[in-house]
Amino acid sequence: MKKIKIIKNIGCILGIVISMGLMANTGLAGKFPTKPIRVIVPTGPGGSTDVTSRLVASVVHQYLGQPMIVMLKGGAAGTIGMAATMAEKADGYTLVFGTGNHTSIVPHVRKVTYDSLNDFIPVFKVNNDPYLIISRSDRFKNFKQLIDEMKANPGKISFGSNGLYGNGHSMILKIELDAKVKFKHVPFKGGGPAIRSMLGGHVDTAGGLFASAGTLGRYKNGSVNILGIAAEKRDKLAPDVPTFREQGVDFVYQLWRGFMAKKGTPQDRIDIIVDALSKTMKDKTFLRLMKAVGSPPNPLHGKEFKNMILAEHKQFGAIFKQVGVTKK
């Protein structure tokens, strides 16, 4: 430890007072948190998950008393970031900011080194967006027309997804099962390109969220139709759009974004984090920013959050099992 001290002294001489000041905190005892909390975001820069995590981090430090530092660890559909979280200590100083895709879909179709349900404690859900199926308004008027046309021409209606066995693909697998139809699945790299292709008329339908690629604006000006919404209730943003359940497809998928901690993190520390996050969700600046981004907070924590993930995980497990896709 002496070596570190010497190095630190030199650092101070070099004028790195601020950075060193933050690090020197690490050794002091005191009320949690006594040093910055790191949040691993298992995606690349610029996506909605990254943006949401940075929005939270830019406000939560007021209530936490320590900065929250976003660390992007993308790659391999988020499995690298999740695994990296498992390699850290369960002391509450490292959290992971994931989505339903990371906990409930990816573990069914990818080799993973962790158990997404039992190795992580769901801490706090920040927001969620229902998944949608969209088409150009001159292509399909409603879900029934889509299904009817698919029954007339099996395997001819195309769907642009954000990737193989991703959110969008899982949705149409369920539609195929429940409505007894067959899509022509075209995987894209991300939701944006899929929606662009749909707008250009290259694919018939695409998946997405209200906030993705200007969908809500297009729906409002009438250039696209939202055919179905994967929520339990109709959404305030588009009250005319029926849910999938209303249309005979038992599929609910709200793409949520939230914090999780490694198994074994002390409950009192989790409580402190939850408390700070709850206050953040009521913060005026935060509410304004989240509203502007198009995805207002919808907080959930504790047992309810855990149950939601369990139900979601079970739903996707059942879909992949029925389709006949299993891990070797």
Binding site: G214, G217, S223, V293
Partner: peptide, 9 residues
């Protein structure tokens, strides 16, 4: 978006 400008049509 965060500044209240909504890119799109």
């Amino acid at each position: 978006l965060a500044q209240g400008l909504r890119p799109g049509p």
